[in-house]
Every structure is written in structure tokens, then in C-alpha cells.
Design a protein around this nucleic acid. Structure first.
Lengths: 468, 468
DNA sequence: GCATTTGTCGGTATACATTTG
DNA sequence: GCAAATGTATACCGACAAATG
């Protein structure tokens, strides 16, 4: 008879004691990982409390802590003091978002957020102009790893429209916003650091953080963005190193942060000496369009910020260019990250974007994209007339509440069978599950408006069916 | 009177006991970090053994272990069981290698390894051809994140010459070799993993590893590359997860790995289930040129490898393109890294490289670069006739033994004052200091051969002077 | 070749913080 | 608002492994 008889004790997970070779914590973690990946432990299963499992296994409970911790670092489970430890929703498959695979070309893609790629024809003339430049050869050497002087001048010029004040010494050209996020993460944080994010945040940042072993701490928000008092609280309790924010149009929720919230958050950032990554990809849809906009959050805490302004959404997705602005304090770390991750960004891509900006073509493209965004959003609300008009009115995606409580993967697969790619809120969720579920519907990805129309109608049918 | 009287005890570092607030290990680590960064503790200072310091502070010795460990993770110190713990050489300043700053344009750059940038004029016609392509617009959207099909075909075609067998499903276009290294590191390893490297290895990989908290384990080698038995030993002792190798011309040592060494290392990699990152930037200087070359190490352990073949050195540095080859086993992880770090690589840059390869211009550029390399190496041995002709005969850099035992930074600064940028072996060193010191002399960076000639003569003067 | 020095690892004990009811 | 449940953080102990002489 065993020392403790747990035969009738209701443990939600009973690891096999016989295969528990030393080191115990590793063997335990491995067993847990296998049982999650195999699907034996379903998403959101509550695992036994550390002390109970320790009693069952007749070991010290902090040894269970270590095993759980290991799995949490891998993103397999998440723990909340007082509540317990739970299997993560997206543990069994990657949440990375990318374009549809070639085999699935027949689906209408409302998943990844593109940028009305119809507009790309507007840049072709400029590409040919660049190819005729007398200084073309200078675009092809190792010089100017952070961008050529005139590329930076165009960048500064471009960002000035959005209320960003900087100079060439504190600006770099990087290879797109996502790349800039990686660089900023490398520069500002170390693996193991804690960074505050919106409860729903950019899925690829979640994945990046997982790879880098960055601990994301979800911070609650309201219709004006992240709540400053919640951020403050987490700082006190968990000692955050930084915060990642997308104030001009949060992805996926489309929430726009108002000026007073920016001021409140800036106070917390200063007081707790946080570092800020501000992703301002949507500046071109916000500045000068939404009333009350006075500039990015970065301008309130310039010393402690890395500001990112991508041109993929506003000008052209295929030219991999984003602008990065940083303070003197952070410069050395940022440059180190750039040299070690990129060496440099394609000067040819940067030259094309520069030429588009200086020739005024970029402004025309922005106008055209805004028109497309207006039209696409009108279409959306025509098809979903019951939806409240919250968040950014020109967003390239919408955040649609749904009734289904099925796991996100099943919902997505259900839509795929209807010929539609959409993403479920589970992909964007950081932390414990929420009562209300959503779909993120990209409006800027379908090849044309008739296809978008068709796609949205299928989505409406799908959520009305009990089957999804 | 204190509990233990250590007033006359010879501790090499005496942290201030009064400022040692709880948590002790953090306070201790912070004090150590400050004393190293301030220069108070000189490089290679031996720190007190954990037990002695613990006695002195009247705490448990594993608390010292934790404090030391934290600093080791930051790359500030390194520890060897049996020997002790030492302050790292390059702890106080970054080792990142990049182009000379604009303020120092007057120096002759023999530091960073460029690729005879004079050859870039040969690509300009191709750029204009690309700009006239009918499918130009397709280069500017989000499609084909790992490269367009014809880009991949050109890549496969190009790598076939070097003995690489792959297909489009296991090949991706990435943004240069350095970027590929980042991607491979993200894909294959987690922070805290241990990876074997040559005692002297690529400085930017050391920096990347430091940022990612990857623990690099130096493995000894001889004139044919890393010693298989040494790698085997470290696997047994330290449980390595992988190994990073540059077999066709190690950077900085120029060592070329021979076929039998490749077979020995492949056995160890298979036996211990290591993952291999093979950086084969120099394939174009080796395959079909050096006798006995039969192909990359990857072909012997294809399942467990990520193979990188950059085009920056062979074709054009400014077009940020490298080819990455991976097995089915590693595919998912690699794609995830690509999506999250890059989203995609500039298709325009990839198109230019593709056109250069398909038109045969790339082959002509390679020939020209080889001629330049021959000439530059001839120049080197003319100026340093006493040097043994070891390592790769066409290397774009040479590894020059020096007598000076001064710290690497001082040596580099001494040369800077002579108007020359070179890098000292300290930058490339992983692990404890070595008796013999070196300079890495880039031969492919000076603007032209007269300048290279002048630079090399100044270097010769410099190492003959007692002053450096 | 064995003892000593020195660093590493795994498990344990205790104090503490958060959530929930 | 307090008690119970539950996860977290930090320090400590003992066994072990590598390098050195």
C-alpha cells in the first residue's frame, strides 16, 4: 500500500509516478508537456495545485513549482496565484500569423492584415526612377547601416506630420515594423523580463515574446486603451521592465487611446522607470483625421521610448521599411541590436520609400488607402448593421464579438471549411480566457471589394449558424 | 567586532556588506555589475570563490552562486569549476562590429569585412532590367514570405554548385547571413541553451548569443577546424543543444575544415542529437577551388542542420539576401522565426540577386571577387613575408599573430591613432584568455588597392613598434 | 592518482503575495 | 474584510563534477 492513498482523490492530472526518474522536476515537466501536446490534457484544464500534486508524488511542493514554471516558460500553461494553473489555449499549435499557404489559395483571406494591395501599382513608376539614379551604386554597399542621410531626412519629414520630433542621430531605417519590434525587444529587454501588454495584443508579439522568453503581463483596458492604474498596480506587484503599446489603433481591438489616457500612462512609465515600445503603424490613419489627436505617447516620455512607424500599411507592404526613433539613453542598445540582427536594411527599399515621400506620391497613396478603408468599413457595417461603432473608424480590420464558446482553432477551421480565413481572439489573448470571444476580420487583404463583400457575407452566415 | 574577521583576509573583491539589502543575491549581483562596468574590477580579475565570499558575507554559498550566475548570464564574468570565476575581457564595452562611424571616415577600415565593393558597379544594369519587369508589382505585396518560387529556384541552382541538395519546400530567402543567424538561433535554441563554438568565433554571433542569453561553450580546434573529441567531451559534460560552425573558412581564423574532420563532427552531432548552424558564406571561395572539398557539413547531417549561404560576400553586400536551407524536422520552427522576426525579405533585393544568378552576371562577379582576393592576399604576404601560409588562401581577411599583451581595446585604439581600424582577437574570443593574441585584418574593405597597401604597411609599422 | 579547490545542480524550507469566497 | 487556497520568491543544504597540483 502506498504511503499516501490518492486512488480516489480527484486530481485532474495524475502523472505516472513510476517514470519519475531524477531529476524529478525535469521528468515531471516532460510528462506534462507530452500530455498537453498529445491533447490528453485539453486546453484550459485546471491542473492540480502544486501542494496537492506534491503530496500525491511525495515530494516538496516547490519541486512541482519548478516543473510548472518550465512548462509556463514554454507557453504550455499559465498560472494565477489564488486561482490555479491552467493549460493554455494555443499550446498545441503555433499562433504565428502569416499569409495563407499556397495550397489554400482558394480561400478568401480575411486573416492576415494586408494593406489594400491594389494600390501597389502606384509605386512602379518610382521604382524605375530610382533605378536611373546616378548614385545607384551607393545603395549596394555596407555603408550607413541605420540608413543614408537623405533616407533619414525623408523619415523625419514623414513622421513630423504625426507629431514626432526627432533628428538623424536618433532615427534608424529598419526592415518593417515586425523587424523593428524584434530589434526593440532585443535592445530594451533581456529574457525573463516582464513587459505589460493589452489583454488582447498583436499575436506576433506574443510569439516573439515566447521565443525570447519575455514574460508578458496582461493589463486591463477600457474603450480608451490600457488602464493606467492597472499598469501601476502590476508595476508595484510584479516589477515590470517595460510596456508595449499600439495607441493609435490597437491590434486586434481597434481601440484608439485618447490624450488623457496617454498622459496618465506617461506618468506611470516615468514613475516606475518603464521602457516603452510604441508601435505607431496607424499614425497615417489617425493624425489629422481623428479629432483630439495630439501626437504619439512617445512625445510624453521620449527618454524611455522606442517609437516605430512602419510604412508597410501606409505606403507599400513589399518594401520592407519602418522608421525607428529612440532616445540618447537607448541609442547604443538599439544600434547593437540593429547590427547584430540585420546588419542593415536594404537601401534600395529605403530609397524607393524615400522617393515616394519626397515626390508626394506617398501622400497620394495614403489618400487612396484611406478611401479604400472608408469603403471597406462602410461595407462591413452594411453587412453587420447591429455592430456598435467603437474603435478606430478607418481600421484595416474589425473586432467582431461572437457567441460561440468553442476553442479558437475549431472556430477558425469551421470558417476555413466555408472558404474564409479569419483569426479567433484566442490567438491574440495574453493570459486567462475571457467570457466574450471575437473574430478579427481583416478588411484590407481580399483581392478586391467584391471578394471582400462575399467574404463578409459568408462570415455573417457562419456566426449565425449554430454550427460554428 | 564582526562575527568573522576578514579585515586582513586577501579577498580580491570585497562587496560592501552594509548595502546588502534583501534580496541578497540581487543586491550582490548589482554591486558586482557596477564594479565591473565602472572598471574597478579589471578584466580577468579572479573573483573570490563562492564559499569564501559567502563566509565573508555570512550567507550560504549558493546565494553567491546565484549572484555570480546572474552576472555570467549578462556576459560580465565566466566561471570554470575547479579554477574559479573571472571578470570577462570585453565586459565593459560592446564587441559589436559595424562600419566605421561617419566621424572617423578618415581612417582606413581594415576592421569590418566588406567584399571588394568596387565590384558593385557590375550590378547596376541588372537593377534597371529588374525595374522594367512586367511582374514588378508582384514584388511589393505580402505574398511569398519565404521567397517567390523563381527566387528559390535560383537559390537552389546557386547552392547546387557548392554541393547543397535541397528543394523549394526547404529553402527560404532571408535578409542576409547575419539575419539568418538570428533566425536560426531563434528557431533552434531557447535562452539558456548551450551551444558549442570555436574558441575564436564570429564576434557578432557572440553578441547575438549574449542578447539571447545563449550560453556559448568554446571548443578547441586545430588547423583542420574544431576537434570532434573536444565537442564530444563538452556534450558529455555540459549537455550541449547545438553547435555553430563556419567550415569553409572560419571567421576570424581562416581555418578550413577538411573532409575527415567533417565526418568526425557529423558523428558527434548525430550521436548527441545536436542541432547545427552551418554558416557557408565562403562556399564560393572554396568549392571547386580548394582541393579535397566535397561539400558542406550539412550534407552529412541534413536532418539536424540549418545551412546558411549568404550572397553579401559573393555577389553584393547591399542587397540583403541570404539563402537558408533546413530539414523537415526544423521547418516549422524556422518559418515561425521568419514570420516573427522579418515577416518577409525584400522581394526586390531577392529579384536582383536572382536576375544576377540567372543572367550569369553573378558568376562574373564571383570571378572578379576571387581575382581581387588573390591580389589582396598577395599584397598581404608581400608586406608580411614572415607569416605562415595557413588557413584559406583566398580569405577576405587574415589572422595576424602579435606580440603585444595589452588589452584588446588599447591595441585597437593605438591603431586608430595611426589611422587604421583593425579588430583585436579579444573581440572574437569565447572563454578564458589565450596566450597568443591576434589582429584580424580585413582585406576586402579598403576603398582600393593603394589604400589597402598603405593600411597594411601602417599595421606592420604598428606591430613592430613597442608602443602598441 | 588522489585529495583539494571550486563551481553546478536538484531538492527543501520559509515567508509572502494574490485571488476567491 | 478576513481566511483559505494557491502560486512566487529567496535562501539554504547536500550531493556531485571538473580542474588543479
Amino acid at each position: 500500500m502506498p504511503f499516501n492513498s490518492f486512488d480516489d482523490y480527484p486530481l485532474s492530472w495524475r502523472p505516472d509516478r513510476r517514470v519519475l526518474r531524477r531529476p524529478i522536476y525535469l521528468a515531471l515537466a516532460l510528462q506534462l508537456e507530452q500530455d498537453i501536446l498529445s491533447g490528453y490534457l485539453a486546453p484550459e484544464t485546471k491542473l492540480p495545485p502544486q501542494r496537492e500534486l506534491a503530496d500525491f508524488l511525495d515530494i516538496n511542493f516547490t519541486t512541482v513549482t519548478r516543473a510548472y514554471k518550465l512548462c509556463e516558460l514554454k507557453g504550455l500553461i499559465h498560472a494565477v496565484p489564488g486561482s490555479g494553473t491552467f493549460v493554455s489555449s494555443y499550446a498545441a499549435q503555433p499562433a504565428t500569423i502569416s499569409v495563407a499557404q499556397p495550397t489554400q489559395q482558394s480561400v478568401i483571406d480575411l486573416g492576415i492584415v494586408a494593406s489594400f494591395e491594389q494600390c501597389n501599382a502606384m509605386i512602379l513608376e518610382t521604382v524605375r526612377t530610382v533605378a536611373e539614379k546616378t548614385y545607384l551604386e551607393q545603395l549596394f554597399n555596407y555603408d550607413h547601416p541605420t540608413g543614408m542621410p537623405h533616407h533619414k531626412m525623408a523619415a523625419i519629414n514623414w513622421m513630423q506630420r504625426f507629431g514626432v520630433e526627432t533628428d538623424a542621430e536618433h532615427t534608424a531605417i529598419v526592415s518593417g515594423t515586425q523587424n523593428g519590434l524584434t530589434l526593440a525587444t532585443f535592445a530594451l529587454f533581456a529574457p525573463g523580463d516582464r513587459v505589460g501588454v493589452d489583454t488582447y495584443t498583436f499575436a506576433n508579439f506574443i510569439e516573439l515574446a515566447r521565443m525570447y522568453r519575455l514574460h508578458l503581463v496582461p493589463i486591463r483596458g477600457d474603450e480608451h486603451g490600457m488602464l493606467a492604474e492597472e499598469l501601476e498596480k502590476q508595476c508595484r506587484l510584479n516589477g515590470l521592465q517595460g510596456v508595449y503599446l499600439v495607441p493609435s489603433c490597437a491590434n486586434p481591438t481597434t481601440v484608439v487611446m485618447d490624450e488623457s489616457r496617454k498622459r496618465e500612462l506617461a506618468k506611470v512609465i516615468s514613475a516606475h522607470r518603464l521602457l516603452l515600445i510604441e508601435d505607431d503603424t496607424h499614425a497615417f490613419l489617425t493624425s489629422g483625421i481623428l479629432s483630439g489627436y495630439e501626437g504619439p505617447l512617445t512625445r510624453l516620455v521620449p527618454e524611455r521610448s522606442v517609437y516605430l512607424c512602419g510604412t508597410s500599411k501606409s505606403i507599400c507592404s513589399g518594401a520592407r521599411v519602418a522608421y525607428m526613433v529612440y532616445s540618447d539613453l537607448l541609442k547604443e542598445a538599439v544600434l547593437k541590436a540593429i547590427y547584430n540582427v540585420n546588419v542593415k536594411t536594404s537601401a534600395l527599399d529605403a530609397e524607393i520609400i524615400t522617393e515616394l515621400i519626397l515626390s508626394g506620391m506617398a501622400a497620394k497613396i495614403v489618400q487612396e488607402k484611406r478611401r479604400c478603408a472608408e469603403k471597406a468599413n462602410r461595407l462591413f457595417y452594411d453587412i453587420f448593421p447591429g455592430q456598435k461603432r467603437i474603435g478606430h473608424p478607418l481600421s484595416f480590420y474589425r473586432w467582431l464579438p461572437i457567441q460561440s464558446k468553442k476553442p479558437g482553432i475549431e472556430v477558425e477551421q469551421g470558417f476555413l471549411q466555408l472558404g474564409i480565413r479569419v483569426y479567433h481572439s484566442d490567438r491574440f489573448l495574453c493570459g486567462p480566457p475571457q467570457e466574450q470571444r471575437f473574430l478579427r476580420i481583416a478588411l484590407a487583404t481580399a483581392a478586391n471589394f467584391p471578394q471582400l463583400n462575399q467574404g463578409l457575407r459568408i462570415v455573417r452566415q457562419g456566426i449565425e449558424q449554430a454550427s460554428i
